[in-house]
Simulated assay, not measured.
Amino acid sequence: MVIFIFMESIRQKKITTLIQEKMAEIFRREISGQTRLISVSQVRISPDLRLAKIYLSIFPVENKEQIFLHIANRSTYYKNLLARCIRNQLRGIPELDFRLDNSLDNLENVDRELRGEGENPIKS
């Protein structure tokens, strides 16, 4: 049995850092004056540098699915904004695939359960 482990190259790491910083700036500009926060929690780029998966955390939680769908439907718009920012550093701009990062929600649920505020099947 052969197991392949894919490691990010140094170039991939540099590009993911660059994209994460620039997308965070773009979202900061886009939502200035509004009462929500969109953070870029992680970026993963394919080995051929053609696809970037961008994981977003959205606060407040109430309308996050609507906000996420709005962002995902405008991925071409955000790709163009990103291209303006990094056109001198990167020849080809990857396609942007936005994903919703639920890790903070999961941590909040675990914390609530540990405090005894959630439904605990063991307490019966």
Rank of each mutant, 00 (worst) to 15 (best):
Tyr55Val: 04
Ser9Ile: 06
Leu49Glu: 09
Thr17Val: 02
Gln12Val: 10
Ala83Lys: 12
Arg99Cys: 05
Ile10Gln: 15
Ser75Cys: 11
Ile122Ala: 10
Asn102Arg: 14
Leu49Gln: 04
Gln20Leu: 07
Glu117Arg: 10
Arg29Tyr: 05
Leu56Arg: 04
Arg36Val: 13
Met23Cys: 07
Phe27Tyr: 13
Ser75Phe: 11
Arg99Lys: 13
Glu30Asp: 09
Tyr77Phe: 14
Ile122Asn: 10
Phe98Trp: 02
Leu51Ser: 10
Ile26Trp: 00
Ser46Thr: 15
Val2Arg: 08
Ile26Tyr: 05
Leu114Arg: 07
Ser103Ile: 08
Ile122Leu: 14
Arg87Tyr: 14
Gln12Glu: 15
Ile93His: 01
Gly116Tyr: 06
Glu113Gln: 12
Gln66Val: 12
Ser57Asn: 11
Phe27Asp: 06
Asp97Asn: 12
Asn63Gly: 11
Arg44Ser: 06
Pro60Thr: 08
Lys79Asp: 11
Phe4Leu: 12
Met1Cys: 09
Leu81Ile: 00
Ile5Arg: 13
Asn120Phe: 03
Ile38Gly: 09
Val2Phe: 05
Thr16Ser: 07
Met7His: 14
Thr76Cys: 04
Val110Thr: 07
Pro94Asn: 07
Ile5Asn: 12
Asp111Ala: 15
Thr16Arg: 07
Gly33Lys: 11
Met1Phe: 08
Leu56Asp: 10
Asp105Trp: 08
Leu56Trp: 03
Leu100Glu: 06
Ile3Ser: 07
Ile71Cys: 01
Pro121Tyr: 03
Arg84Trp: 00
Val40Tyr: 01
Arg84Lys: 12
Ile45Asn: 03
Gln34Leu: 14
Val110Ile: 15
Glu95His: 07
Lys13Trp: 03
Lys22Ile: 03
Leu90Arg: 00
Gln42Arg: 14
Lys22Pro: 08
Ile3Arg: 12
Asn106Gln: 15
Ala24Trp: 02
Phe59Gly: 00
His70Met: 11
Ile10Gly: 08
Ala72His: 10
Lys123Val: 12
Ser75Trp: 01
Met7Gln: 15
Ile5Thr: 11
Glu21Gly: 07
Ala72Leu: 04
Ile93Ala: 01
Ile5Tyr: 10
Val43Cys: 03
Val43Ala: 09
Gly92Lys: 13
Met7Ile: 13
Thr76Ser: 12
Leu107His: 13
Lys14Glu: 14
Glu21Arg: 08
Gly33Asp: 06
Glu65Cys: 02
Gln12Phe: 05
Arg44Met: 00
Leu37His: 08
Phe68Cys: 04
Met7Ser: 14
Leu51Pro: 07
Thr35Glu: 15
Pro60Asn: 10
Ile31Phe: 15
Arg28Trp: 03
Asn102Cys: 06
Arg44Tyr: 02
Thr35Gln: 13
Asp48Gly: 07
Gly118Trp: 11
Arg115Gln: 11
Met7Tyr: 12
Phe4His: 13
Ala52Gln: 03
Glu8Arg: 01
Phe6Asp: 15
Phe68Pro: 03
Cys85Thr: 06
Val61His: 13
Ala83Asp: 02
Gln34Tyr: 03
Phe59Lys: 14
Ala72Gly: 05
Ile31Gly: 01
